[in-house]
Every structure is written in structure tokens, then in C-alpha cells.
Amino acid sequence: MSEIFSSELTMSKNGFLFDHGSGLTYTLNTTGQLIFNLLESGKKSTQILEKLMTEFDVTEDTARKDLDDFYRQLKELGLIDQ
């Protein structure tokens, strides 16, 4: 398990996420799933940004803004600490 998440999380192939600590469940869309997997494998946020830009038709501005929002959301949901 990666260091980054605050508790043990398991994600199914179609984006269903289970939090073993709280018992809460979540759904991630495909982009969310990709980012989650990258975070889990220990990638840094700059690497994740690059990956989004090579994989998808998206500008750096948009990708950066969306990533920031996604991290904020993970934090608000209590899934990551920093």
C-alpha cells in the first residue's frame, strides 16, 4: 500500500473504491481511476500531470487545475493527508 493514502483503500476495475478504515465507498470516473492508480504506485504530482497530458487531449492549464481540484477533494474526503 502506498504511503500517500490515510487508510487502506481498494479499487475495483470499474472505479468502485472501498475504504477499509471507514467502510465508506466511492465511485471514480476513468480519469479519476488513472490518477488514483498513479498515486498508489507512488508517482509524484508532476509525473501525474505529464501522464495526463500525454494520454489525453488536454491543455496543461486545464489538467493542472483539475488535478488540484481532485487533490483538494481527496483531502476533503479524508483520503489523503497533505
Binding site: Y26, T27, L28, N29, I35, D57, D66, L74, L77, L79
Partner: peptide
């Protein structure tokens, strides 16, 4: 060709 992009989301089931 790059895939079309969707903003990442995570939604808590409630």
C-alpha cells in the same frame, strides 16, 4: 491519437 479528456471525479456514495 490522444484520448478525449474528462475532468477527474471521485464521488462518495451516500
Amino acid at each position: 491519437e490522444k484520448k478525449s479528456y474528462v475532468k477527474p471525479t471521485i464521488v462518495r456514495h451516500s
